[in-house]
Design a protein around this nucleic acid. Structure first.
Lengths: 116, 116
DNA sequence: TGCCTCGTACGATACTCACCGTACTACGAG
DNA sequence: CTCGTAGTACGGTGAGTATCGTACGAGGCA
């Protein structure tokens, strides 16, 4: 069997519908920021269950939906798994340099808080 | 009279207390983003009353407080006026390039939505 | 067919937040 | 001292949201 994409569809904003406010709001939650950082490191698609967030499954679903509806990630079903990927191209086209500087800022803050 | 700074003090987070989540949250509100953009253009301090926001005075106070407590702006009393300035140096030290790419993103989005 | 896993849907809860109006304080000008 | 202006404090309201638990659906596997 070819691990085909399921027919279940998920609503995503088109590139031109993505709003800066929504992106910043999506990234202002530590849980979601963590997800985005891991997706950025992975450089590929990760399933929802890959992430070990300190919340229940339903809350996890909620956070992924916020990220998808704000245009930060794209999601697609692959069998029972739901794969997640950063919308790097769309974000770079709309807001050049934004994603990278946010990821860099998050990395710096983590280092700063860890080193004490 | 020398327009001296009043003795009324305002609580600001120290540079190392500024958190990325809080900054992003502060910037995720269109009203506050507008304030930050005007402060960035002005390259100096502006009084609260300079801004013509479509909300009441009390709501304006609320937004300025969010910006101050997140570390995005500094505020100081000068007579009856309260002057506001971007904390460019602190933000640049903590999150290099972040403020500029956010401001650029906001400008691009405004242009994009205006041009249609 | 039946089971297990991944993820959703829904309802509930508690909290945050954007907003308002009113009453108030601080300061400068006359 | 009195008045006007800038901004605060406080209480309230309605909307959003982060969280949970439970029940459910979809797909792979035995």
């Amino acid at each position: 069997m070819t691990t085909a994409t399921s027919s279940r569809e998920l609503a995503h904003p088109a590139r031109e519908e993505i709003r800066l406010e929504s992106v910043l709001h999506a990234l202002s939650d530590p849980m979601r920021m963590q997800v985005v950082r891991e997706l950025a490191e992975a450089e590929g698609e990760l399933s929802c269950s890959y992430f070990d967030l300190p919340v229940t499954k339903s809350t996890t679903t909620h956070h992924f939906r916020v990220l998808r509806e704000s245009g930060v990630i794209q999601q697609v079903y692959r069998g029972t798994a739901k794969m997640n990927g950063l919308r790097r191209d769309d974000l770079a086209a709309l807001f050049p340099g934004l994603l990278d500087s946010v990821l860099d800022a998050a990395a710096r803050q983590e280092r700063r808080l860890a080193d004490g």
